[in-house]
Simulated assay, not measured.
Amino acid sequence: MYKIFETVDEVSRYTAQRLLDKIKALPAAALGLATGSTMEPVYAQLLQYLQQSPVDLSKLTTFNLDEYIGLSAEHPQSYNYYMYQHLFNKLNIPAQNVHLPDGLTTDIETACQTYSNAIQALGGLDLQLLGIGSNGHIGFNEPLTCFNSRTHVVELSEQTRIDNGRFFTDQSEVPTHALTLGIQDILEAKEIILVATGNNKAEIMAQLFTSAIDETLPASALKQHPNFTIVLDREAAALLPEQALQQAI
């Protein structure tokens, strides 16, 4: 299902409301969360809603999608730092209920298995929030990642490192590897919302619409999910064919 809005602000309000509705309907929900510039206005709007109408978050559990290998939780470009700056520092979620991959783990294999196991122990994620990379990656699952993958280490593609280089002082500082939730972990979520905004996402969104379900385009795996929503602003939807626009609600 496509939801297309005119502005980023409208996208953010809609997506934040979906998150809030899930929390209210299921106070002990397990949420899969994403990072990146697309999510910043979504989290800002969610915080605004929660300030206007406080909700008990003591039973909520969160799992983040990914983290750079080699960056500490205190590094300003780590996703751990991002989440606390944009969301967790302002919410009353118990610390033990917040799960983020450890970019400095010394036992990567065990850390990956433990992360996926923790999600499965809760019966899977109730809602997974996703962005999308310009090459179609979800989380950090780059093209040709197996659709049955669990949490694993990925070598970041040159395109991903270039795209993310804008957040670093120098391109050479961008990590080469990351920990990421696997595509199978993502697909097992009961509900998935993919958000894309801006004209830099228009081409990949058009590719996603026309693509077959194929590992060369990781996000295409989502097409087989029974409860999957794509939320776009008008710029990100600019290259979608008329057929896609007719499907939009």
Rank of each mutant, 00 (worst) to 15 (best):
D185N: 08
P226C: 09
E203M: 12
L208M: 11
L194P: 09
S220Q: 10
S211V: 05
N227T: 06
A221S: 14
A196G: 05
E188H: 08
E191P: 00
T197S: 09
A221K: 11
A212G: 13
N200M: 10
E215P: 15
G198C: 07
K223S: 00
P218G: 09
P218D: 13
K190R: 07
P226V: 06
L208Y: 15
P226S: 01
F209A: 01
A206P: 00
E191M: 04
E191V: 04
T210D: 15
Q184Y: 10
T210Y: 13
D214V: 08
F209R: 00
K201W: 11
A221D: 14
E203H: 00
H225A: 06
N199R: 15
Q207I: 02
A206D: 04
K223A: 12
F209P: 02
E215F: 12
Q184I: 06
M205A: 03
A206M: 05
A221N: 13
E203C: 07
A212M: 12
E203N: 07
L194V: 14
Q207N: 14
L194F: 07
P218K: 13
D185C: 05
A219E: 11
I183F: 09
I186A: 07
F209V: 01
K190I: 06
I204K: 10
S211L: 10
A221P: 15
G198D: 09
L222H: 01
L194M: 15
I204Q: 08
T197V: 10
K190C: 03
S220E: 08
F209C: 00
L208D: 06
A202P: 04
N199H: 14
A189W: 04
E203S: 05
I183E: 08
L187G: 00
N227G: 00
Q184P: 03
L194H: 04
L194W: 02
A202L: 06
L208V: 06
I183M: 03
A219Y: 05
I183V: 02
L222V: 05
I192W: 06
T210N: 15
A202R: 01
A212F: 11
A221I: 10
H225Y: 05
I192R: 07
E191D: 08
F209L: 05
P226Q: 00
H225D: 04
V195R: 03
A202Q: 01
K201G: 05
L208H: 12
D214C: 08
A212E: 14
T216I: 12
N227A: 09
L194D: 05
I186F: 11
V195A: 02
Q224K: 14
S211D: 09
E188M: 09
E188D: 09
K190M: 02
P226N: 07
L187K: 03
N199C: 15
A189P: 03
N199E: 15
T210Q: 15
E191S: 09
I183T: 08
L217S: 09
K201I: 10
N200I: 12
K190V: 04
E191L: 05
P218H: 14
I204P: 01
L222W: 03
A219K: 11
E215G: 09
